[in-house]
Design a protein around this nucleic acid. Structure first.
Length: 517
RNA sequence: GAGUCGGUAGCUCAGUCGGUAGAGCAACGGCCUUUUAAGCCGUGGGUCCUGGGUUCGACCCCCAGCCGACUCACCA
């Protein structure tokens, strides 16, 4: 590559100006890209447009391979198009493998079939070029299903070489394995890394399945603001932006809750949104600064209804995309078959940590938190201590799907206390493999209680930078009267991880957040 | 934020005791009408992450930094 470093060529790629002006620097003159640009010129000199406008595609690789017998018997002319992934070029007859929407198929290109001129063009082509071909389907001498090409056209010339990944009997060679490069160049990753496209198609199917389930229950899919003057609905630091014309600060939402509840007040009764939320926190295997949440709200329902919907969403979606309720996550075999275990936080602490928190003094709780290596923001608080103990001692032990209910009231201001014991909430969190997948409430709708708890939360901002500010307009909405409502949030990215077996959130996000190069 | 590992050709990697680098594929040239991880033969290709230091001499040893992966911590 003649001293043309990766940075140099990336610059050429990223800057259209640079490309138009041509890379005239000495260091670029021998690069692979320069050689391919030269080929474009040669192809144009053959009076062939290296970037034609359209192509009629009639067939795709998988259908041809799956339906080989009928394609072979009919000898119908197929028209396939795709990217060249492998070439075995010989004097007057060659093989190449193209990759289309569905997979790969081998082509046989012979000079006496396509003509001298097109064969000369074919010999100039590179891995990564996109071609369209017409031909008939037969097996080659070694038995591979092959399109015997009678017409071939270049559809798009590649000038930036792709990593060459090879595969034989399921074994891969020279995998494009640098994760950073894969995430930064997902377009390349999608082309060359086996399974990546399938993972993201599965993600799309998961979301489609969820929407079908909810639409079937008369839930309305709505869109609410991403840019908000006051954020809330969760405990997290927001991203901050600024609107120039209004000269105001706007925050990127940290949850969908406040606006969806306004819609319940407004009488839409069953609403949901699947959308991006943004939290200004660290990145790791299960956290990306922007992530996708499902939140739904059902008027006249409560957290029991939410448990039923949660079970249905997970079980039916697993069956829809995987054909089974079994999944392997984090190396553990999970079964999403319903019904799932239900347990109160206090009972879970007793069962999994041997702590009888209901009968422990404040001092004992505080000491237990200390012993578990935890700390409570803003000093000791009985409810937060119990919550912290659960987080530190129990969460990781909940492997099979488990609804954990009756969190302490101090953990959220937006949920109704339990009728029988107002120290705990009508709330559940769903844990699978020690990770939280869903969170649901019997939503708070007592306006005086709501005003009080949100105000108290806003006061915590002095000790907890994740406590959101008071949202007066939201409280006024609750004052208008929100019917009894069940609310549910599901982390879509984590659900996709579970159902695809991916262990990093970055592998289920097409474009995970990266530090700029 | 801490620890571990890593950064060498377009890609995947090797590099011995410190003597300024190799392989496969890709690329380029030649041969070739049934190849298939790569048909055969040949050729070119390097800011060894960056900056210091030690040394006659550093991909290699030392220091600092940058970037990444993984693990842990943090994370309603």
């Amino acid at each position: 590559m003649g001293g043309c470093s990766r940075n140099e060529s990336d610059r050429a790629f990223n800057c259209p100006h640079h490309i138009q002006a041509g890379c005239t620097g000495m260091e670029d003159s021998n690069s692979l890209i320069q050689i391919r640009k030269g080929k474009i010129k040669e192809i144009r000199e053959m009076n062939i447009d290296p970037f034609p406008y359209r192509y009629d595609v009639t067939d795709h690789s998988r259908a041809i391979i799956d339906g080989y017998d009928s394609y072979f018997e009919s000898q119908k002319t197929v028209s396939v198009a795709g990217r060249i992934m492998a070439m075995r070029v010989m004097g007057k007859a060659s093989f190449c493998t193209i990759q289309d929407r569905d997979g790969r198929i081998q082509l046989y290109v012979a000079e006496n079939a396509v003509g001298q001129e097109k064969y000369a063009l074919f010999k100039k082509l590179d891995l990564g070029d996109i071609i369209g071909t017409k031909g008939t389907v037969k097996k080659s001498k070694t038995g591979e299903i092959t399109v015997f090409v009678s017409e071939m056209d270049l559809l798009t010339k590649n000038i930036r070489p792709l990593p060459v990944v090879k595969e034989k009997d399921g074994e891969t060679f020279d995998l494009f394995s640098d994760k950073e490069l894969r995430y930064r160049n997902r377009h390349v990753d999608l082309i060359v890394t086996p399974g990546v496209k399938e993972t993201f198609i599965k993600r799309i199917k998961i979301i489609k399945s969820i929407k079908e389930i909810l639409n079937g229950k008369d839930f309305l899919e709505v869109e609410t603001p991403v840019l908000q003057p006051v954020y809330g609905g969760a405990a997290a630091q927001p991203f901050t932006s600024h609107h120039n014309a209004l000269d105001i600060t706007l925050y990127l939402r940290i949850s969908l809750e406040p606006y969806l509840k306004r819609l319940i007040v407004g009488g839409l009764d069953r609403v949901y949104e699947i959308g991006k939320c943004f939290r200004n926190e660290g990145l790791d295997r299960t956290h990306n600064p922007e992530f996708t949440m499902l939140e739904l709200y059902q008027a006249y329902g409560d957290y029991n209804d939410m448990m039923a919907i949660t079970e249905e969403i997970f079980e039916k979606t697993a069956l829809a995309v995987n054909g089974t309720t079994k999944a392997v996550f984090d190396g553990k075999e999970i079964d999403l078959k319903t019904p799932w275990k239900r347990i109160k936080v206090a009972d879970a602490l007793k069962e999994y940590a041997g702590l009888d928190v209901m009968n422990m003094s404040d001092q004992d709780l505080d000491a237990a938190v200390d012993r578990a290596g935890g700390a409570i923001k803003g000093g000791f608080n009985r409810g937060l201590a119990i919550d912290k103990l659960f987080e530190l001692l129990v969460e990781e032990k909940l492997v099979q799907p488990t609804f954990v209910t009756h969190q302490p009231v101090e953990t959220t201001p937006l949920c109704k206390p339990d009728r029988d014991d107002d120290r705990f909430l009508q709330r559940f969190e769903l844990f699978i493999c020690g990770t939280e997948f869903a969170n649901a409430y019997s939503e708070s709708n007592d306006p005086e209680f709501q005003r009080k708890t949100l105000f108290e939360q806003s006061l915590r901002r002095e000790v907890d930078d994740e406590a959101p500010p008071m949202d007066e307009n939201f409280v006024q909405a609750i004052e208008v009267g929100m019917p009894p409502t069940g609310g549910l949030g599901i982390g879509i990215d984590r659900m996709v991880m579970l159902l695809t077996g991916e262990s990093s959130i970055r592998d289920v996000l097409l474009f995970p957040t990266m530090r700029p190069e």
